[in-house]
Design a protein around this nucleic acid. Structure first.
Length: 355
DNA sequence: AATGCGGGGAT
DNA sequence: ATCCCAGCATT
């Protein structure tokens, strides 16, 4: 395609997406209205980290909870890390919460509570990568940054029929996004593109009939929208087994704090057999005595494997001595323990089974 | 360049 | 059941 017609197409795309956003922007708790004042950088940063690989619907209540409990980045930095992790429980990818806290400490102690404004400086913060740095720079500070998330990858790959498989195709996609990103209000434009990807240019069944850039879309012209973006095939997920140990005493259960990195790192959970390290389903119980084993009470799917869980319930009445990082937790307040979903499912099963 | 890292919603 | 989502850090 000639350079002139490319830039003419780019201008039309830019204008049409921008105009469409004015009346179709989603109303979201962390977002200001199109053309309005720049939103609070703390809110933008917090929402962007929560939104990494996570849908808008899943994030909303967590964003409200965090901003209510910790209204500023200094408030967050003053919290205990364990409280931040517990508040994150259920949202997944817990390294995000650990980096969030680390970043809050850094911004508070080293930057006097002021977030850096440039994309290149934001990129240095823990938990802030290429996407998030560009998004914060554009949305919170008005910088002309080129924002590329999964929505924009799909939208741009279709508009320009880019069929180089990801992740290699990412460079071409970024370059095309650069070409359609306007000099002013790049933050609104990025959010407009993401809204378009989330609501119209969807992965399956795109609503091309109401799309503001249908006429500019090469994939629509070719009639194979769902071919883009081209992705590599996925690997099969192995099924693994785990055993959890239920030790209850005086209406409390014993919880463990998991190792600080790796699967569910730093989170609380039921004592288990070391499944995360590969000791699937065969560990010696943590204390001697009689155990009743319930097979396959819970099934859970992770990114790269799925897990079938057995629950071993301690039968002896003798007092159990606590040790290590374990903590006795009152069962009637188990919702506050901050258990990742995997363990929350097992607790639910046990409490239901008792009725 | 590959891999590890959650969980839930849509299809 | 499978795919996917406002990705990042590590190797």
């Amino acid at each position: 395609m000639a350079v002139d017609s490319f830039s003419a197409k780019a201008r039309k795309i830019s204008a049409n997406i921008g105009a469409h956003y004015v009346d179709n922007a989603r109303i979201l708790p962390w977002r200001s209205s199109p053309g309005g004042n720049l939103p609070d950088p703390y809110h933008v940063w917090l929402s962007e980290v929560m939104l990494q690989q996570t849908t808008v619907g899943a994030v909303k209540s967590y964003f409200e909870k965090f901003t209510r409990r910790w209204p500023t980045v200094q408030d967050l930095a003053r919290a205990e890390e364990a409280d931040v992790l517990a508040a994150w429980a259920g949202l997944g990818y817990y390294a995000r919460a650990r980096n969030l806290y680390k970043c809050a400490l850094y911004v508070t102690e080293k930057m006097d509570g002021i977030f850096p404004q440039k994309e290149s400086e934001l990129l240095l913060l823990p938990g802030v990568g290429a996407y998030t740095a560009a998004a914060i720079a554009a949305i919170a500070f008005g910088e002309r940054a080129v924002v590329v998330d999964a929505n924009i990858e799909r939208l741009v790959a279709r508009l320009f029929a880019i069929d180089t498989p990801l992740p290699k195709g990412k460079a071409e996609i970024r370059s095309a996004m650069d070409a359609i990103t306007p000099d002013h209000a790049a933050g609104d434009f990025a959010q407009a593109c993401m809204d378009l990807g989330a609501t119209i240019c969807t992965s399956k069944g795109p609503k091309c009939g109401i799309c503001p850039v249908q006429k500019q879309c090469a994939a629509f012209a070719g009639g194979e929208m769902e071919r883009y973006p081209v992705k590599p095939p996925k690997k099969a997920k192995p099924v693994r087994r785990a055993r959890f140990f239920w030790i209850e005493q005086q209406d409390r259960i014993l919880l463990a704090t998991r190792p600080p990195k790796g699967m569910l790192g730093g989170m609380r959970g039921l004592p288990d057999d070391g499944w995360a390290a590969g000791n699937d389903g065969h560990a010696t119980p943590p204390i001697a005595g009689e155990w009743q084993v319930h097979d396959n009470i819970v099934q859970h799917s992770f990114t790269h494997f799925s897990l079938q869980v057995d629950l071993a319930v301690y039968q002896d009445g003798k007092m159990v001595t606590n040790k290590g990082d374990n903590i006795w937790w009152p069962l009637d307040n188990i919702a506050e323990a901050g258990l990742p979903t995997l363990y929350a499912k097992a607790v639910d099963w046990k409490l239901k089974e008792e009725k």
